[in-house]
Nucleic acid binder design. Structure first.
Length: 293
DNA sequence: CTTACACCCTGCTCGC
DNA sequence: TGCGAGCAGGGTGTAA
């Protein structure tokens, strides 16, 4: 589920639960996620306070008392479930509570308060790592990471530099985390649709020859920011409601204009086209060949 | 350096 | 009803 807006939603949800709390106990139900968990994972966390929780691209970062940072990536299917410990043992706390599936609960953080935070990940493409804050920037995860799309560096000037001369399709360039970090398949499709740009076009083709940012590039830059901000405000897309254990879908139903809408009418006013699905770099691209030029 | 592709893993849906 | 194929929001490693 998690692209930048979803990860940010998770960050917001976990902040009041985790920040300031002490990690009383860590339980590992397996020795690895996508990668092996770092050595002495449990000992380095237990008894320490969580000082802050932040996001970089699709990564969640928890500052741990003592100077280390807990790095968490949700992969494709990772999610956090917050439970009041009593909720587990006192049915009726939530009237309609459905027993949640605990298969694929891989890591459990018992906090100093009544809360328990469980990392659940069916496909196990997610991972966690732990290292001193000072080593973060040079770590394998972050050293080649691109700009933060909602950060200060994001502008059509910077995009022009990043895209200049690239033959890769716009779709691939926007998905490349070494250029811009945080966009995923959904929001790339949405941004290109809203900006009216064809996903197959070479990324370099929207940078004008004289080096000045083109109008298309400016539109794309602004659209990316707008789409992400709107998604964050809506609380992400299809994330399950991680704050409760009832298994129900989150409130945010699809406001997608393109993603997942193959064969359905293009929603751009006056377009009248039909959304098509093609495959680029092994992944589905949804777009309207009529209004995306 | 850039680009392309296989791969990691589990579960669900679709067509036969 | 059963079963294989294809698909799913991620990143990584390798090869060309």
């Amino acid at each position: 589920m998690p692209e930048l807006p979803e990860v940010d939603t998770v960050r917001r949800g976990l902040t009041p639960v985790m920040v300031g709390a002490t990690i009383a106990k860590v339980t590992l139900n397996r020795p690895d996620l996508r990668f092996p968990l770092p050595g002495r994972f449990i000992a380095r966390l237990e008894g320490r306070r969580v000082e802050a929780l932040s996001r970089r691209a699709k990564y969640l970062l928890a500052d741990i008392e003592g100077g280390e940072v807990l790095i968490m990536h949700l992969g494709m299917s990772g999610r956090f479930i917050v439970e009041d410990r009593r909720g587990q043992h006192v049915p009726g706390e939530f009237e309609q509570q459905i027993e949640r599936l605990t298969a694929h609960d891989h890591v459990v953080f018992d906090l100093s308060g009544p809360a328990k935070v469980t990392y659940n990940d069916v496909r196990r493409f997610g991972f966690m790592d732990l290292m001193p804050r000072a080593e973060l920037a040079d770590s394998a995860h972050f050293k080649s990471m691109g700009i933060e799309p909602l950060g200060n560096e994001m502008s059509s000037d910077v995009l022009a530099k990043l895209f200049a001369g690239r033959k890769a399709p716009l779709k691939a360039a926007l998905l490349d985390q070494r250029l811009i970090a945080g966009l995923g398949n959904i929001y790339v499709c949405e941004a290109l649709h809203r900006a009216g740009l064809r996903p197959e076009r070479a990324a370099g083709s929207i940078v004008s020859a004289n080096g000045e940012p083109s109008e298309e590039l400016a539109r794309l830059s602004e659209t990316i920011i707008a789409v992400l901000q709107e998604a964050i405000e809506a609380g992400g897309s299809t994330l399950r409601d991680f704050a409760h254990a009832d298994g129900s879908l989150g409130y945010f139903q699809h406001r997608f204009q393109a993603y997942g809408r193959e064969d359905q009418p293009c929603l751009r006013a006056g377009c009248g086209g039909t959304i098509e699905r093609i495959v680029q770099s092994g992944r589905s691209t949804f777009y309207c060949s009529r209004c995306q030029g």
